[in-house]
């Protein structure tokens, strides 16, 4: 069965890249444009793994991750954070919010798929 990935990113460019990369790698992809929409579609998307940006309008990545973790059904689903910053502070905050791991931008298809495979069985 195809694994389902929920991606949350406000940038149309990155959304398209995620979509193309994930579809090519054989994932089923569901997309949201910000944290609020991400939480809204969470139940219907029922993802095996989540990839989220940090800087987003309405609800940022930290808030989104916390929201996912509060949902009993998804509190153990792997969440990867897309981040341009490789600095420890951002990673740390993401981790504290409950992120499983991160993918440092610039966006690279190989890195993305590697990271997803690392956190999914």
């Amino acid at each position: 069965m195809k694994k389902r990935v929920l991606t949350v990113d406000d940038s149309r460019t990155i959304r398209n890249m995620l979509l193309v990369t994930l579809n090519n790698a054989g994932f089923e992809t569901i997309q949201a444009e910000d944290g609020v929409e991400g939480l809204e579609v969470l139940e219907t998307a029922n993802p095996d793994v989540i990839v989220t940006d940090i800087n987003m309008p309405r609800l940022d990545g930290f808030g989104f991750i916390e929201g996912v973790r509060r949902n009993d059904r998804y509190r153990a689903v792997p969440i990867l954070v897309l981040t341009t910053e490789s600095d420890a502070e951002k990673k740390n905050r993401a981790r504290q919010a409950g992120a499983t791991g991160w993918i440092v931008k610039p966006f690279d298809p190989t890195k993305l798929i590697d990271a997803i495979e690392r956190v999914t069985a």
Partner: peptide, 19 residues
């Protein structure tokens, strides 16, 4: 301020992906 920051951040993110 956030929107301004995000705008630059977004451009940077995409630009990075295209080198």
């Amino acid at each position: 301020v956030n929107a301004v920051f995000r705008a630059v951040h977004s451009i940077k993110g995409g630009a990075g992906a295209f080198g």
